[in-house]
């Protein structure tokens, strides 16, 4: 009996090795690179990158702009997705799943192709090359909206009607019912949606490059630049570490998001 259990447990060894080799060690390498620099071919310990980041106008303003773009994109996603998810979840329509499907379907189509298509549309209506920030934000919303709709829909759909009825019975008007009951109860969905839109909006440089004609640099782009053009992997790693810290803080503030991404991406479809 003991032997059999042992064999099942053993199955996680390859996966554990895989995680150590290709996830843990690479992350440690980033940490290592971030706090070292190469001088005359020798690698040595240094805080230079850290200091540089927080004294560089360019990097700080990139950080600030990435934040702003991400916050606005996330806010717009939320403002569109919440009422939409609410309507869908509360509708009496028999096959509302199918309706939901229509809204989240693009999530599974290659995003480079979709962003390129959006670029053509923006070009056609004359926004390309003139409204770089607007285009980037439109692009982020376009790309990540489904990731906001889905978790919101899931929580709102599960929402127990009896709570709402009870609130109404106790004399709450529609507005109070919403602000005091519905919205607080849907917070897990809101948080899950925000975390899934906010992070990529700060880093997905394919969107900003394509739609702003390389006019806007976001944090992800900066990391890419340090690896592909500026040839300073140490600085690139330092920016990654700072990004990781931001991710970590976001997680602390929002209380983590567990399997949100997985839930959103897969479980509801396949």
């Amino acid at each position: 009996m003991v032997k059999f259990h042992f064999s099942r447990k053993q199955l996680c060894i390859p996966y554990a090795l895989f995680l150590i080799l290709f996830v843990i060690i690479p992350m440690l390498l980033i940490l290592f690179y971030a706090f070292t620099e190469t001088v005359d071919g020798m690698i040595r310990f240094s805080f230079a990158n850290f200091v540089n980041f927080f004294t560089s106008t360019a990097k700080l303003s990139t950080l600030l702009m990435s934040f702003t773009v991400a916050i606005i994109s996330t806010a717009i996603c939320l403002l569109i997705a919440y009422p939409l998810a609410y309507i869908l979840a509360r509708s009496k329509f028999k096959r509302k799943n199918v309706l939901l499907m229509l809204f989240i379907l693009p999530m599974w189509i290659n995003f480079v192709l979709r962003i390129t298509a959006l670029r053509e549309l923006l070009d056609l209506i004359g926004l390309l090359g003139t409204q770089n920030y607007l285009n980037t934000i439109i692009g982020m919303v376009y790309d990540f909206l489904p990731f906001m709709i889905l978790p919101l829909y899931t929580t709102l759909e599960k929402l127990d009607n009896s709570y709402l009825e009870a609130a109404a019975d106790l004399g709450g008007n529609k507005f109070t019912v919403f602000t005091k009951v519905t919205f607080p109860l849907s917070m897990p969905g809101v948080i899950s949606g925000i975390t899934m839109v906010f992070m990529p909006s700060m880093t997905n440089y394919v969107v900003s490059d394509t739609l702003s004609n390389f006019n806007i640099t976001i944090l992800g782009k900066l990391i890419d630049q340090y690896f592909t053009t500026y040839d300073n992997w140490h600085m690139g790693s330092m920016i990654s570490i700072i990004l990781l810290v931001i991710i970590f803080i976001t997680m602390l503030v929002t209380g983590g998001f567990k399997d949100g991404k997985q839930e959103a991406r897969g479980a509801n479809l396949w």
Partner: peptide, 27 residues
């Protein structure tokens, strides 16, 4: 090279538009 790159980064990263300050202030 590092100095020139830094300059280029500023060119690519600046200016921060006025509305961005407004948004940040509002937030």
């Amino acid at each position: 090279n590092a100095a020139v790159n830094e300059m280029w980064e500023e060119v690519k990263g600046l200016p921060i538009p006025v509305w961005a300050y407004v948004v940040i202030a509002v937030i």
